[in-house]
């Protein structure tokens, strides 16, 4: 078990290093940040001076190695725009992003598991049909639209929940639904097909032959088998939510990493982009590690094999 964790952490470190190279190169392809910092009529000497100040006049490889060396000691440089440590900027917003992604995931699972299970149990029945329509709606509605709709109905019309901001548990409800809405469809289908497979298996047939109540067969003996493919997917979705929450964060003025990074991209604020992407990739790796470890909890065969 420990060996598995160490191996995964090592693989994760390599992934993060790769991500850092890519983001470093790509952000510098986007243009010269100094142009954004100085007035349009600044003399070339001033531009050169600022470039030297941020180390932007050095060769790219050297710049990268410097960045990496500093990053390893926790220094991601100062934000060009906010004149504060980039790391601080990201770390301040990380909890909000994790909170939003976790709530979004929770919402999608809480919806997908019952719908998927009931669709499989009553295959071809009305729940299955409603589930399918629901899934289609989920995939056809982009997050920004769902977000606006939710604000319109629950914040503006009904005035039940706050439309934007962060702080109380009530604030997280609408953004979490907007974020978790899309994956519901795919998760429902995964749960449904996994359940159909399991319900047709020999061991479930034997459970029935031995008089196990249907309720236990479905929600205990079959569901745990179906959880393995769902878990794989949850890892991917959690990671995608961490990195892709930008739209939702913007609509609901949620102070998260995604929004901060995208703003930083527009102002070519390299240190913030780098720190933000790096931390997102660290979270990505960690969430995948978590999924790998939780397989073992669900499926004893995996516990022994690895």
């Amino acid at each position: 078990m420990l060996r598995l964790v160490l191996r995964r952490l090592w693989q994760g470190a390599i992934s993060i290093l790769g991500a850092s190279v890519i983001i470093f190169v790509i952000s510098r392809l986007s243009g010269d940040p100094v142009v954004m910092l100085v007035p349009p009529d600044a003399p070339p000497s001033m531009i050169a001076e600022i470039r030297a100040q941020y180390g932007l006049d050095q060769p790219l490889v050297w710049q990268y190695l410097l960045f990496l060396g500093h990053a390893l000691s926790g220094d991601f440089g100062n934000s060009y725009r906010w004149q504060m440590p980039a790391l601080q900027l990201i770390l301040d917003r990380l909890p909000a992003t994790i909170q939003l992604a976790a709530c979004g995931l929770l919402f999608s699972v809480a919806l997908a598991v019952p719908i998927g299970v009931l669709s499989a149990v009553h295959r071809g029945g009305w729940i299955d049909r409603i589930g399918r329509v629901f899934a289609m709606l989920g995939q056809a509605m982009p997050a920004f639209w769902v977000g606006l709709l939710l604000i319109l109905v629950f914040a503006v019309q009904l005035n039940w929940l706050p439309a934007f901001g962060h702080g109380t548990p009530a604030h997280v409800v609408l953004p979490a639904i907007a974020l978790g809405w899309y994956p519901v469809a795919a998760q429902t289908r995964i749960v449904r097909s996994a359940m159909l497979d399991v319900l047709d298996s020999d061991h479930i047939r034997l459970s029935r032959a031995l008089g196990t109540p249907e309720r236990l067969i479905v929600w205990k003996y079959a569901l745990r088998n179906a959880a393995v493919p769902l878990l794989t997917m949850l890892g991917v979705y959690f990671a995608a939510m961490l990195g892709g929450a930008f739209v939702v964060e913007t609509i609901f003025a949620w102070p998260g990493v995604g929004r901060t990074v995208v703003e930083a991209v527009f102002s070519r604020d390299f240190p913030v982009v780098q720190a933000g992407v790096l931390f997102t990739s660290i979270l990505f790796v960690l969430s995948n590690l978590l999924v790998d470890l939780s397989y073992g909890l669900v499926d004893p065969r995996i516990r022994d094999v690895r």
């Binding site: 034997l206 499926d299 065969r301």
Partner: peptide, 12 residues
């Protein structure tokens, strides 16, 4: 049943 390899639930 016939196949003991699949007659038991693998995750319990």
């Amino acid at each position: 049943m016939q196949d003991p390899m699949t007659s038991l639930n693998p995750v319990f």
